[in-house]
Nucleic acid binder design. Structure first.
Lengths: 156, 156
DNA sequence: CGGTTAATGGATATATATATCCTTTAATCG
DNA sequence: CGATTAAAGGATATATATATCCATTAACCG
């Protein structure tokens, strides 16, 4: 699980959990504790994939374009670092033709299972599940006033 | 799926498919088309994990120590690049205590599913499955005589 | 023994992922 | 309009994964 994916998910979860207003890359980076410049790049990817919308200028920032309940982890992952399915023999063996050998057929089966695992979870689920710890709880917004409804304390 | 894992699996599959004798890192590298020196490093990891045994000197080389039918892909993966389970909050949030927040709880669930997917496939299965392409077929041993029973042709 | 073979271990080089920086473009506001 | 804000885009630096190289150790063989 790469750093990039972790950052992208943190940002998306944060946006989903604070939908009242748009958030600048700077504010998201401070809130979720990641490098500002790198997040900026990641937000570009998410924007390119249509998962978030960027607005320039004063009062600009990023907002989620999708309903968190309809947004799977897979879509976030694929926006920043697509799951690499195996479509041709990595050895370039002509003998296999369009078919993969059992090794790569099996590995691609595993990749498919990984895709399914990612697809089975939505951002909305993570925010709602009861009896569980709310995502990113304990993190607070710096540089602006706290927003009503935001998670500020510990919830078990 | 990293390069390292791909190489490790190729080497293990090759050894499993040619169990009559030991194979030097050089011969495995040539046969399965990967960098010799890097393979050498990977074989060290596999040896350290006890999946292969290295024998020095003349007629030395590597052999599988395990029955391919009892050897899962997960064990090979974990030998060279362990599946990273999430055991503590990557943000270091004390508030969570031993519990992960839903984001990381979910991500760790996915990692568990990935582990299971890897654990569900054995090296032996890949060599045996009928109606499928034999692993690494088309590759031949260079520098020594062909070995009886080895895959030399195309099998569909 | 000494010579040859090949794994083992560790140092070094290269490529890619991660992270930073700076310029340009677009939006708001007075 | 000009000033300010912030995203968009691209160039540069740093860290890690990938790959190479060399010295050492151990086994075989004559």
């Amino acid at each position: 699980m790469s750093n990039t994916v972790e950052y992208a998910l943190r940002a998306v979860v944060w946006l989903a959990d604070h939908p009242e207003e748009s958030h600048t890359s700077t504010s998201i980076a401070e809130a979720t504790q990641m490098p500002r410049s790198y997040l900026s790049k990641i937000l570009k990817s998410l924007s390119h994939a249509g998962l978030v919308a960027g607005q320039r200028g004063v009062h600009g920032g990023f907002t989620l374009t999708r309903n968190p309940d309809q947004l799977s982890i897979l879509e976030v992952v694929n926006a920043v670092e697509p799951v690499q399915r195996i479509r041709a023999c990595p050895l370039g063996l002509e003998a296999h033709g369009k078919n993969l050998c059992n090794l790569h057929r099996t590995l691609d089966d595993v990749m498919l299972e990984i895709e399914k695992a990612f697809a089975n979870h939505t951002i909305g689920q993570m925010l709602k599940s009861p009896n569980r710890v709310k995502p990113l709880c304990g993190l607070t917004v710096k540089g602006r006033k706290a927003i009503a409804g935001q998670s500020t304390g510990i919830r078990r």
